[in-house]
Design a protein around this nucleic acid. Structure first.
Lengths: 146, 146
DNA sequence: TTTGATTAGTTGTATAAACAACTATATGCC
DNA sequence: GGCATATAGTTGTTTATACAACTAATCAAA
């Protein structure tokens, strides 16, 4: 029995992700206003490197749900901004390990604060338990399709 | 009292919209497999024209949450694909009214079926009432930020 | 050990998004 | 009517994404 509860007018937002677009735009504006010269997409790469530095581009693909060319070019741009550095792996010469620079380490705290601030603005008025339900549903959607 | 329930590891997916990205990718693959030669972004414009044909580019901006240059170029590409036609408004010569062609009308049924199918796959195993909560939360997020 | 398949990463090309700057038309106020 | 302002749409530029095709290194099996 399929989930046929989607009437026409309702599927649009789910597919186009208007909510996450709105969040990303708001966060980008905050970055710009604070003089943080990075895009949200670049920040999403830094985000995973802050969790674990020196991972390969392929691992960044998996973590950020992007394909290899996208990561190649994001790392290109981050390298031009001197926020990361590619280091060829010694154990497997096909791989690059991507390392944060000192400048990128400095970005972490401020950008994470702006991200939390943005989410607080986004979720204002929403009870915690409903947020939890929403997060769980989105996680299932992702697991169902990835 | 802000919603401080966002621990570090959790804000990422909300901001990057991995779920909606996964949905859009799956739907794009279905379009390609079915020989429907449109992008998801183009489809999102057609979607609103199927609801109401002959609206202005500005109205498409509002409906799709895109800026004016984005709509200009999407309509450019849809016009090249002979799916829409710009018609200058007679009452206000600044405006273009965007009309579906017969070819675009033919796309409606099949593409909407694929969209519903995609959402059913995405939401498999999720009870209806949790989907409703999720939709409501995302709507509030959008309203809070738009 | 050679060869065939897999994996990591890059490059080319098309589409799309955001922002700024621009043109043309319409509106409102004196 | 004439001028300032607002609105509709376009163009230029940068960044990002998807897909296909490619190179180089590794692995595995005969």
């Amino acid at each position: 029995m399929p989930n046929n509860q989607f009437k026409k007018g309702e599927l649009y937002s789910f597919i186009t992700g208007k909510a996450s677009t709105a969040i990303a735009r708001r966060l980008q504006k905050k970055f710009n206003a604070a003089g943080l010269n990075v895009t949200i997409e670049q920040w999403s790469v830094l985000y995973h490197l802050w969790k674990q530095d020196g991972i390969s581009q392929q691992e960044l693909c998996n973590a950020t749900f992007r394909d290899k060319p996208s990561i190649t070019r994001l790392v290109d741009n981050l390298e031009r901004l001197q926020l990361v550095k590619r280091v060829p792996s010694e154990s497997d010469r096909r791989m690059n390990l991507v390392f944060l620079t000192k400048q990128a380490q400095k970005l972490q705290e401020e950008s994470m604060e702006l991200a939390e601030e943005t989410l607080n603005e986004a979720l204002e008025g929403v009870p915690v338990e409903r947020i939890d339900v929403c997060k769980e549903v989105l996680q299932i959607v992702y697991d169902n399709l990835k």
